[in-house]
Amino acid sequence: MSAVQITELTVHYGEVLALTGVDLRLEEGRVIGLLGTNGAGKSTLFNAVMGLVAPTRGRVEVLGGSSLAARQRGLVAFVPQSERIDTDFPVSVRDVVAMGRYGRLGVTRRLRAADRAAVDAAIARVGLTELADRQIGDLSGGQRKRAFVARGIAQDARLLLLDEPFAGVDVTSQALITRLLHELRDEGRTVLISTHDLAGVPALCDEVVLLHHRVVFQGDPAEALAPERLALAFVGPDVADAAHAPDPRPAQLRGDGPAPSEARDAGPAHPLDRTEEPA
């Protein structure tokens, strides 16, 4: 069984085409980086796996079933990007990690002894035991990210989705999180990371998917980072293939189409979206 199996996926937002004819099979037990520019469809692909967008065409299977089925079985965890967390919200680290257990609890979500033990174990695993009762906003960006990974561990998810995990995270925390994600992979879990931070990719990922409205490359990270490969995803296949015949694809896909704001993913804006170059 593959972690994610996407067949012929096409997603339109009104007139704007976000993804077209995406075929993608992600094996279990790997750390997979999803790379592409803003508006390349990374967020849309994430949302499709999460069941947040309805495909215009095609099918998305998560761990052998529908996205909803996988989520209801507690198999999918989502680690939001830093900017999307309300750091003033009155919850402690322990509260956040406990939310990972909610799917398996009764209507009031009261934690049993076993759940509390799982929460403590997850917190210990990411090295936040000392800070467990701190308010989430009191933590550094890297510590906060670990708290959300701990939530996925407490949930015992098979597939972890991380949106820009290293934005606003210092180098030490980055190394810590990388090691943690590798441990999770070694337990057979699948980690899917959406990023345009190329620097962290070789150390982190077993496999890279380059996305530019469709999959332009899938394979070894070192190969993906070769300039001619990157050009496919970061400049656009049309420029990379400039010598070839006129491109028959719609304007939005060629990169000379409407303003970037139009062609952009309908997904949430990312802090790094404001800059032209990946950090």
Partner: peptide, 8 residues
């Protein structure tokens, strides 16, 4: 987003 991820 986490509520959604849990299938709620």
């Amino acid at each position: 987003a986490h509520a959604h991820a849990l299938g709620l």
